[in-house]
């Protein structure tokens, strides 16, 4: 079975190089959660409907931006490869996409929450009976999802990201309900840590993989 383990290692290394080596995925993730952290603030300024439009537009912009940057910056340095779409990998991609969408939806749900009483400029009470069940589910889903991705792709920092984001989201909602924090500071801090890691990885990537000399 040792040659099976080697193929798995190679598959992981391919995924790592294609998706995680340049830090762009971390930067994208950090920016998404930073946008979620300021969501309640922009909601007060723009109103709920326009805020959703802004968030979706930002999400699209960041995703497209990441692809473009990867094409212009990472591609020329490390090359391009498309991981093989076996039925197992396709199923994995679908499950991952669904879980990421559900997770972001749950985080948005908690951020949407009861919000602030705009007239009195005080936070509304948490919905009676809801407690922090949704936030706890988010902690579990994020922790397990990112840990599964970390295991499958062999990227150890993903284990840390999932639990950190889930717990930061829980802390943010708690502080909004109990201390009136509109700006989700714990979530912003978590996003900031991910952004910093992404930046460090990007700098390291640019140093490790210089552009090939002209004519190569």
């Amino acid at each position: 079975m040792s040659e099976m383990a080697d193929f798995r290692q190679i598959q992981r290394r391919v995924f790592q190089l294609v998706s995680f080596e340049d830090g762009l995925w971390d930067l994208l993730l950090g920016l998404i959660f930073l946008a979620l952290a300021v969501y309640p603030v922009t909601r007060e300024l723009l109103g709920p409907e326009w805020n959703i439009v802004l968030f979706v537009a930002l999400l699209l912009l960041l995703s497209v931006g990441q692809l473009l940057v990867r094409r212009r910056v990472s591609g020329p340095r490390i090359g391009v490869a498309a991981p093989r779409r076996t039925p197992k990998m396709q199923l994995l991609a679908v499950i991952t996409f669904v879980m990421v969408a559900v997770t972001i939806g749950l985080v948005v749900l908690t951020v949407l929450g009861p919000g602030r009483d705009l007239a009195a400029n005080v936070p509304a009470e948490a919905s009676s009976g809801r407690g922090y069940l949704v936030e706890l589910v988010v902690v579990l889903v994020m922790g397990l999802l990112f840990s599964a991705m970390g295991y499958l792709f062999g990227v150890t920092r993903l284990y840390f990201y999932g639990w950190m984001i889930g717990l930061a989201n829980l802390a943010s909602v708690y502080m909004e309900h109990n201390a009136g924090w509109t700006f989700q500071i714990p979530l912003a801090v978590a996003a900031g840590i991910i952004l910093l890691i992404g930046l460090v990885l990007l700098v390291r990537f640019l140093r490790t993989y210089p552009l090939p000399a002209e004519g190569d």
Binding site: D6, V14, G79, A81, A82
Partner: peptide, 23 residues
């Protein structure tokens, strides 16, 4: 071959990067 086995395709630069072979 092991790298190509796990991908749909790879370009020359990617193979050089992951195998660390000279061009």
């Amino acid at each position: 071959l092991m790298v190509l086995y796990t991908v749909e395709f790879a370009d020359f630069t990617f193979l050089a990067t992951i195998t660390k072979l000279t061009d």
